[in-house]
């Protein structure tokens, strides 16, 4: 029997009365009351007989960046892919539990995974612009293949998406060049623009910087910081400093379990679990 009660707001940040003694935190880090995007409870996932996720309970806020950290094989990528049902590409997967996006059960029988993925976009570890397509076609492919043909609208989305991905100024004069002619960091931003073009509600990022050099990484981080204002961003990263820099909240997964989930500040400065503390300091994992 599903729990039908409305999602309760999670107590986030310091209690209201204590605010005068608490340092002023830059708005990019501030927690406070949150609107829940993903409301997940008792979520488990199996690959055949292997259980990859155990009973995950988590509420992920909207208009914020949530980082998912943990050692390799801890289930963080699996978790991310479960958020837009991408794990279903692997045959023999099975899930249990509740996974709602803005109150809607993404695993309900009537929900088409294709529609889920239109709402929950994804950017991958390796940048993957379509090799047969130009920069512009890459950005617009999601719209075009979903039946959008209004030229003015497409032109607007092209520019808006590339601007949001901080790529417009670099490519506006050669939009018809192949997408794969760009540098690695630009390709990744092109992929972000492509994901943003279909106007998803959530953007999942699976180690988006792990193949990039520090400068390209910094650019993507700036971009994530910008996206915070209007999107729900969930990023899997192996780079603790990146998680600390860009995220409002951090979830630490270990051996398929959600060990700790809190404001990034708390996870890094005063985690309640000693494994979390050791992991974020780079002592294990």
């Amino acid at each position: 029997m599903a729990d039908l009660s409305p999602p309760k707001p999670i107590a986030a940040g310091p209690p209201a009365g204590a605010s005068s003694a608490v340092p002023r935190i830059p708005p990019s880090i501030a927690g406070g009351e949150m609107e829940v995007a993903f409301d997940i409870a008792g979520f488990s996932l199996w690959y055949g007989a292997n259980q990859a996720l155990f009973d995950v309970d988590i509420r992920i806020p909207t208009r914020a960046v949530t980082a998912i950290i943990g050692p390799s094989g801890c289930g963080k990528s699996t978790f991310l892919r479960a958020l837009n049902r991408m794990h279903e590409l692997t045959p023999g997967t099975r899930i249990a539990g509740r996974l709602r996006l803005f109150g809607e059960d993404l695993y309900a029988a009537a929900i088409d995974p294709v529609v889920v993925r239109r709402r929950v976009g994804m950017v991958f570890q390796k940048s993957n612009p379509f090799p047969t397509m130009s920069i512009a076609d890459n950005v617009l492919v999601g719209l075009r293949l979903n039946g959008v043909s209004d030229r003015a609208f497409l032109r607007d989305r092209l520019e808006a998406s590339l601007r949001m991905a901080a790529l417009w100024d670099e490519v506006k004069d050669h939009l018809s060049r192949p997408g794969i002619s760009l540098s690695g960091g630009q390709q990744q931003r092109l992929c972000i623009a492509r994901a943003l073009a279909v106007q998803p509600e959530v953007l999942l990022m699976d180690e988006p910087c792990s193949a990039l050099d520090p400068i390209a990484t910094a650019k993507i981080e700036e971009l994530i910081n910008e996206l915070r204002a209007s999107f729900t961003v969930i990023i899997v990263t192996h780079n603790m400093q990146q998680a600390a820099r860009v995220s409002n909240r951090t979830a630490f997964f270990y051996l398929g379990k959600l060990v700790e989930y809190d404001q990034t500040r708390t996870i890094f400065m005063n985690p309640s679990n000693s494994q979390t503390e050791a992991y974020v300091a780079g002592r294990f994992g």
Binding site: S20, V22, P23, R265, M269
Partner: peptide, 19 residues
């Protein structure tokens, strides 16, 4: 006193989160 606490806290936060 309050400013000292704020500055200390921000310093620790910066060291923790900003490498």
């Amino acid at each position: 006193d309050r400013l000292e606490v704020e500055i200390d806290d921000e310093a620790v936060r910066y060291m923790n989160l900003r490498a």
